[in-house]
């Protein structure tokens, strides 16, 4: 865009009587809002849009499905066990004679709830822990990070098996256990980010005009950590879903009549050699599709977050 000579025309600043050149903003279109830039970047990524659509379908399947498709997921009916797909049961029945399709919906609900809960809890706790540790530094930082190291050194499966033998697992308990492990890596990530952010010039500048620590964290470090954090949180959700499935598969999860995809999968694997594919594949596909979609979404969010800063 040419800078017309008249645009750069010297301009007299009142009071000083001196000439000052006023600059132009070149080819900038009217300042695009961060939201519109974000939306534009996101919608340019076709895979991400498809993933989002897929997730919407999965959520609708789990929560709206039961409204239209009524099944009995409480009573065991051994007369109908292991039936193949039919008009009454489009995806056959389970080893306990429950309707598979309805069971997938029910199992999906707990999976989605767990994924979101772990994402929020682990991210929130990790954010606070990591920012405080990184910002304060010194001995406090050392102690807080050694706590993280110590917790990371506990073998997760062993811990869960032990726990399951002591108490009867509930969904809330499983959420807390998975979050208890999940926040550790977030805390490390956030601390690293905070360490590098606190030495940035703009943080120095804010300190230089008298900003308090609270303000530095809340206005300058927090928002800038948030970028990586949003992405990390999505990946946490995917991780939690996988962990939950693994636990369910091992029988370390919520007791019946509640269920989850991992548990359905385990039942299907037991009967795999009898040819009961409907007990295996639908659950497996749902797990893979959901985790994949969440991961792709996380990647796309990273692009969106960075696009805001790298517009030129």
């Amino acid at each position: 865009m040419p800078h017309g000579a008249e645009e750069i025309a010297d301009q007299v600043i009142a009071g000083t009587g001196e000439m000052v050149e006023s600059e132009t903003f070149g080819d900038l279109s009217p300042s695009a809002s961060p939201l519109s830039i974000a939306l534009r970047t996101f919608s340019a990524n076709k895979l991400a849009v498809a993933s989002l659509a897929m997730l919407v379908i999965v959520v609708a399947f789990c929560y709206l499905g039961p409204v239209f498709y009524h099944t009995n997921q409480i009573a065991t009916n051994l007369l109908r066990e292991n039936q193949g797909p039919s008009a009454a049961h489009p995806l056959g029945t389970s080893p306990t004679g429950k309707d598979e399709l309805g069971r997938l919906m029910l199992g999906g609900q707990s999976t989605i709830e767990l994924g979101l809960a772990v994402g929020v809890i682990a991210t929130g706790f990790g954010l606070v822990w990591g920012t405080v540790s990184g910002f304060i530094g010194g001995a406090v930082d050392s102690i807080m990070m050694r706590v993280v190291d110590a917790l990371l050194s506990i073998p997760f499966l062993f811990f869960v098996i032990l726990l399951a033998s002591i108490v009867r697992p509930t969904l809330i308990l499983v959420i807390l256990v998975i979050s208890g492990v999940s926040w550790l890596s977030t805390a490390r990530l956030v601390r690293g980010e905070t360490l590098s952010l606190r030495t940035r010039d703009y943080v120095s500048a804010a300190r230089g005009f008298g900003a308090s620590n609270t303000r530095l964290i809340a206005r300058h470090i927090g928002p800038n950590v948030l970028g990586v954090l949003v992405v990390n949180a999505t990946l946490k959700v995917a991780d939690a879903i996988l962990t939950f499935a693994a636990l369910g598969y091992l029988g370390l999860s919520v007791p019946p009549p509640a269920t989850n995809w991992g548990e359905i999968l385990a039942g299907g694997v037991n009967n795999f050699f009898d040819g009961y594919w409907w007990q295996l594949w639908p659950a497996a596909i749902l797990i893979v599709v959901t985790v994949l979609a969440v991961n792709v979404l996380g990647d796309a969010l990273r692009d969106v977050v960075e696009a805001r800063l790298n517009q030129r």
């Binding site: 940035r200 010039d201 703009y202 206005r219 800038n224 805001r308 800063l309």
Partner: peptide, 18 residues
Amino acid sequence: RRNFQLMFQDPYASLDPR
């Protein structure tokens, strides 16, 4: 601190990008 201020070498780094 009102009385003395620092002007940074790299103005881009001294402004919060967000």
